[in-house]
Write a protein that binds this DNA or RNA. Structure first.
Lengths: 201, 201
DNA sequence: ACCTCACCGTGACACCTGTCATCGAGTGGG
DNA sequence: CCCACTCGATGACAGGTGTCACGGTGAGGT
């Protein structure tokens, strides 16, 4: 009997996944949480062996939750289950110590198998995403560039961004210009979108 | 026995919802599709009585699929099940003839009840969303403004948008300026984001 | 010690963007 | 019929934006 923890901010999806996995005779959902920062505590209390983690969650990212699990409960394995198969996500998930990465597009019947493999110590990674993540390479963005791009995501004017990070307007423009060059974009909005698509933010 | 059709582009979520609903003794999932433009055909072939429709789907929106169902198979009821509880979505869903609107944040155990109510002819609408949708009013955007805003969503330069719709650059700027005023924004990117949040696109 | 690189800043320049005034054509309601 | 509204367009202007050149600091590697 493999003991599972589910972390997803959408209650309906969480409950549905629980129903799906409980159909398997060798799987048992022992905990469910809707926030990233509740994962470790719930995992400890429930004695979960495998944690299925969504990435977009309030409190803490699924990837960050996987890193925390690695530190606090090294015996627990984590499997990222997410909507967005962004190349950078795969890389960061593996670096955070996750044992698997599955997108929500995969057929439902394959999920239980992925869980079993992760539980037995194998790595489960979507082959297409692994390839993309390799050819793409790691993020070329510096810390500042990444930070400023996240603020540029909604199309804020440079002045607003500069005020938010307490920097000169010219400096912000320069960092963003560098980011635009690295992403191959022509405007900061486009650069921000591209960076997000690749999981660089 | 209520016969259900599930439409959601994420196979895992679709399968999980099927597992969840099949646990109920009076419900039966008789069809599953991953595209909006396959809904009507599948509903006809399977004899579904209630269709659970996601909004974001390839081919056709869940809302548009509900409208098509209304026309082609008036006896079939539709229940929108979506991630985003945008006020404009609720309004458009009801206008399209949907009988219910539920966000994926709601507890899993409430879904089956929602399905039963819809099947018995009642309307099921998230009360918070209904209120928001009322105070918000309908979209103030004209057709052109809405169209141009969708192209502005990714931060494209005005010149690119103008070329795409075969309009003068100045005209595009004027329409976008109007949209910026109506949304209370200061840039077209912000206006586009606000309009999308309210379900005006 | 030297080099590299990320970081912060200034100034200048060409270009893009948002706003406003103004025009004409078409549509539908009172 | 006239009015209100949308749509398309032009021109002009202030201000925002992207790029480049240049300078300076500090951390880390050789």
């Amino acid at each position: 009997m493999i003991r599972l923890l589910l972390a997803d901010d959408q209650a309906l999806v969480r409950g549905a996944l629980a129903a799906l996995l409980d159909l398997e005779s060798d799987l048992e959902v022992v905990a469910q949480v809707g926030r990233g920062d509740e994962v470790v505590e719930a995992a400890r209390a429930s004695g979960a062996e495998v944690c299925l983690l969504d990435i977009e969650m309030p409190g803490l990212t699924g990837i960050d939750a996987a890193a925390e699990l690695r530190r606090e409960l090294p015996g627990v394995r984590s499997l990222i289950v997410t909507t967005f198969g962004r190349p950078g996500y795969v890389r960061r998930a593996i670096e955070a110590g996750a044992s698997g990465f599955v997108v929500k597009d995969t057929p439902a019947r394959q999920l239980a198998d992925a869980v079993r493999r992760v539980h037995s110590g194998l790595r489960v990674i979507d082959p297409d995403l692994a390839a993309e993540s390799l050819i793409d390479g790691p993020s070329p963005l510096t810390g500042r560039e990444r930070e400023l791009l996240t603020y540029a995501l909604d199309g804020s004017p440079v002045a607003t961004i500069a005020a938010r990070v307490h920097l000169s307007e010219g400096t912000v423009r320069n960092h963003l210009s560098a980011a635009i060059g690295k992403t191959g974009a022509t405007t900061r909005s486009e650069a921000a979108r591209i960076a997000q698509d690749r999981g660089w933010l």
